[in-house]
Design a protein around this nucleic acid. Structure first.
Length: 868
RNA sequence: GCUCGAGUGGUGAAACUGGUAUACACGAAGGACUUAAAAUCCUUUGGCAGCAAUGCCGUGCGGGUUCGAUUCCCGCCUCGAGCACCA
């Protein structure tokens, strides 16, 4: 008997699959489709570590099973290759980014090739291929034509180290997500996509995604950040202490509030330090110098907060620079502000004059940058009012129910007393109520009205009901080289003119120098003969847009590109692909890291909805089911990184233990979406298991030669376990519970191992069930059984629901909730029969102490519980 | 601070809808084979007591509901993730 040689088996079958084109996806066959997609990798210079393929293995297991279950499966792979890392790498190593990209892709492809995936490489895509990005450009132009891409001069996030503008999504704690530098606000010209037009749909349609992880949906909801409220205008007057008359200042402050019902409780108004009205009121503000000084300090503080890397500074070893920064921050304090003396705001509900403050706790970038403060019903306003001794006025009386929620009630608790204590505290303004379960007090004609009703009534009467989102429009231009050129031309006569479709792709010019200029201009601006062009409309002199698209552009539609690849090589028009889109969309299963929750996954949903609106696709959500991959950590429990020198290369693992052992191990490690540390010992265990499967084959041969009578172990046992395993493996793979599927396969193999003999049929079934996880070895053993066709062309095993149980079953017998005996009864025994045999058990009798049981409960197939 | 998610052997982890907690694997210990080692195979492996049968304890902590709780309820602790003055 030949020993299992993973290397030989691996090479042999990879070649066979390639030659037979086994994984070539066919169009429009008479089968249901299944589209299973991985988040395509960014081919970096470092190559893959063992963590990367985890998701790919999972989709491969699903793809193989679906194939065997009769689906027409699309399981493609490609490269998301534009972006800063490659460009920076290229600059550092003095190679062109296109060259570096090509090389990196080769390495990645070779590494992936070792693992035996079912990718249809005929559909490979690459976002940096002009043939690909002409469509990225085309989609952008469609947005431009419909007013969804616009030019803006607003200040944006600027990373001084990467020398480019960034979208909100690209920030982490106010720092550049890529390099960690503090972000500056820099006013500059940029292209922006109106994603906010889709905010409501992006939010609502999350409800359709019942196969997405709840946390991801929650993150998107937070990111979109919808809040409903009202805009209310406060007139600003000039008021001097000497003169008792109001003087119009000409200014108005508009505030956004979600609680217009508390308008009667507003006791002051607060502006963000960035608010423009402050400058306008300059002449009316008596303490303008003080205010101005404060504003500078506040802005400084924001920068400081962004610069200090709290989490990276251990308390013991803060260096002088950090200590100083932190000290400065602490000196400035938490919520601070300054009153604008000489001006007041008029509350529209009661004509009262309210003081106006500028304070750091109001953000310039949200709402209108101004708020009305209701300290009695808002935590932050309350804090501020306490600190600066400002008046607090209650206008909401909470319901008794909501009071009792504040104080947890237990049995020894006197509710009436608690209520009155709570009431006292509220009245003394020692505590506040911020909820909406209550009625208005002291609010003129609205007194007595429920908060929820008053929100709209007061909102409509004194302001305008509106909805606000945290989501900002997507800053879509980058001042860097390695990205898709934005296909627009600036003509003095015609303005911005799109590059006509027939001239797409607008190719990225090949240049020697592509360093970022840092001036806010893209490096493309220096290439005169590229920049200077003719207007497509009037043929007059014109200049090209020199900014490029952000890294996320190409991944917004790539799942459609794989489908297009099956039809023709990216030919216009889009209608060429309608049929194919109709067949393959949406993606049935999408697997990837959770870090994409608020970027790629929002952007792609946005683009897809847009493509739906222009009739390019006919469904409104691109991904039916989303599954997150849990990170694989290094053996030491840290993230795998060059820095820690703990990276494990999949090539080495494959070489030593084989692709099948590695695949099996990564699926067995633990729940798929949980992070887990790598263990080389674990891989060894999987190799042992595969050897066991290999050696089992011997028992079939022996069966042919020898008499089957002399066996202690009845074969029917294997039959039952085989049916159980078929059921469990099928269900578990569908639900992506790979670890328990594999453990069930191990149970089956252990059982087969205990048996002297094995029928070829049982063995074949085992191989089929194991094949999605360990394709090479199963294919080999399958062919050794005499099969001429690939195991993946065979039909997935079916189980018989009647054969899932043994003839007898073991039941636990509990007396007063404790297991005191185990009885064995025929599986088809009736309830009475089982109860009496439980009561007849010696041990049960002992624990019953000859008393009559009060109650006997039988739980089907589980246990008998006797109450003494 | 707020919102989720999670705490089970030496380790990764199982457990259907409230029904025998620790499946499966790793590691460890002992044994067989071997000149020896590796590999392989067999046995043991939650804790305590006991020769054993068996008993008691045990799923982060404290309570509760139940014949029965890892699972449900209340309160707390720890860890992880996300958001972080969003009016």
């Amino acid at each position: 008997m030949k020993k299992y040689n993973h290397k030989q088996v691996g090479v042999k079958w990879k070649k066979y699959w390639e030659v037979k084109k086994l994984y070539k996806t066919k169009e429009s066959v008479d089968k249901p489709k299944y589209y299973v997609l991985d988040m395509f990798p960014y081919p970096s210079g470092a190559g893959l570590h063992v963590g990367h393929p985890k998701g790919y293995i999972a989709t491969d297991v699903v793809a193989r099973m679906k194939m065997m279950r009769g689906f027409n499966v699309l399981h493609p792979m490609g490269w998301d290759a534009f972006g800063l890392p490659t460009e920076n790498y290229a600059l550092k190593n003095k190679v062109h980014p296109a060259v570096a990209t090509k090389k990196n892709i080769q390495v990645f492809k070779k590494q992936l090739g070792l693992l035996g995936f079912t990718y249809d490489w005929d559909r490979e895509i690459n976002t940096t291929d002009p043939n690909y990005y002409k469509w990225t450009q085309w989609i952008f132009l469609q947005m431009f034509k419909r007013g969804l891409a616009y030019e803006s001069y607003e200040p944006i996030n600027w990373c001084p180290s990467c020398k480019t503008g960034l979208a909100n999504e690209d920030l982490e704690d106010g720092k550049c997500e890529r390099c960690g530098s503090a972000i500056e606000q820099k006013p500059m010209r940029q292209w922006v996509l109106k994603i906010t037009d889709y905010a409501e749909r992006l939010l609502n349609d999350l409800n359709l995604l019942d196969k997405w992880p709840e946390p991801i949906k929650e993150m998107q909801r937070n990111w979109i950040g919808k809040s409903e409220g009202a805009l209310v205008r406060f007139t600003v007057i000039a008021r001097s202490e000497e003169r008792a008359t109001r003087q119009s200042s000409g200014g108005k402050i508009e505030v956004f509030t979600t609680r217009p019902d508390t308008l009667f409780g507003a006791t002051y108004v607060v502006l963000a330090p960035e608010h423009l009205i402050i400058e306008k009121l300059k002449s009316k503000i008596k303490n303008f110098d003080e205010v101005n000084k404060y504003i500078r300090k506040a802005k400084n503080k924001t920068t400081l907060e962004r610069t200090v890397e709290w989490e990276k500074v251990p308390t013991q070893s803060r260096d002088a620079r950090f200590s100083r920064q932190i000290e400065d921050l602490e000196k400035i304090g938490k919520k601070t502000g300054v009153e604008l003396k000489g001006v007041k705001a008029i509350n529209p509900v009661n004509n009262k004059e309210l003081p106006i403050f500028v304070a750091d706790y109001v953000l310039g970038g949200y709402g209108t940058g101004a708020i009305m403060a209701v300290p009695a019903h808002d935590e932050r306003d309350w804090e501020f009012a306490k600190k600066y001794n400002l008046p607090i006025k209650r206008v909401v009386q909470p319901n008794a129910v909501s009071i009792s929620h504040i104080h947890p009630i237990n049995h020894k608790f006197d509710l009436t007393q608690a209520l009155s204590e709570k009431q006292k505290k509220l009245e003394m303004l020692e505590e506040i109520y911020t909820g909406v379960d209550g009625k208005l007090i002291d609010s003129k004609e609205f007194t007595g009205m429920r908060c929820s009703e008053a929100i709209s009534k007061i909102g409509v009467k004194f302001g305008k009901l509106t909805t606000h989102y945290k989501l900002r429009d997507w800053v879509f231009s980058r001042q860097r080289y390695w990205g898709e050129p934005i296909p627009l031309v600036r003509c003095e006569k015609c303005g911005w003119v799109p590059v006509p479709e027939k001239y797409l792709p607008l190719e990225l010019p090949k240049v020697k120098h592509y360093e970022p200029s840092g001036t806010g201009e893209s490096p493309l601006a220096n290439i005169k003969n590229w920049v200077n062009t003719k207007c497509p409309q009037c043929n007059g002199p014109a200049k090209r847009e020199t900014n490029t698209m952000p890294q996320w552009a190409g991944s917004c539609w790539y799942y459609l590109a794989y489908v297009m690849q099956g039809i023709s090589n990216f030919q216009f028009p889009i209608s060429n692909y309608s049929e194919a889109f109709k067949y393959w969309n949406p993606v049935d299963l999408y697997v990837g890291g959770a870090e994409h929750a608020t970027r790629h996954l929002i952007y792609a949903r946005f683009w897809h909805k847009f493509l739906y609106d222009i009739g390019a696709v006919n469904n409104i959500e691109p991904f039916t089911k989303l599954q997150n991959v849990g990170l694989i950590l290094a053996e030491d429990g840290r993230k795998m990184s060059k820095r820690w020198n703990n990276v494990i290369n999949p090539d080495d693992v494959v070489k030593q233990y084989g692709a099948d052992a590695m695949r099996l191990y990564e699926m067995f490690m633990g729940p798929f979406d949980q992070p887990c540390a790598w263990s080389t010992q674990g891989v060894v265990g999987m190799k042992r298991f595969l050897e066991k499967v290999w050696n089992l084959k011997e028992r079939i041969i022996r069966n042919k030669k020898q008499d089957t009578n002399n066996t202690q172990y009845p074969i029917p046992n294997i039959q039952v376990i085989l049916h159980q395993t078929t059921k469990k493996v099928t269900e578990d793979i569908e639900a992506l519970r790979f670890n328990t599927a594999i453990s069930q396969l191990m149970i089956l193999v252990n059982e087969m191992f205990r048996s002297e003999v094995l029928s070829p049929k049982s063995y074949a079934t085992l191989l089929q069930l194991l094949a999605p996880f360990a394709p090479h070895i199963c294919e080999e053993l399958w062919s050794q059984l005499g099969n001429k066709k690939s195991i993946f062309l065979s039909d997935w095993p079916k189980y018989d629901a009647d054969k899932l149980q043994f003839d007898t079953m073991k039941l636990a017998v509990q007396v007063n909730g404790r297991v005191r005996a185990t009885i064995e009864v025929p599986t088809d025994a009736g309830e009475e029969e089982i109860k009496s045999s439980a009561l007849a058990d010696e041990n049960v009798k002992k624990w019953l102490e000859n008393k009559e049981p009060k109650k006997v409960i039988y739980v089907r197939g589980r246990l008998v519980s006797i109450v003494k």
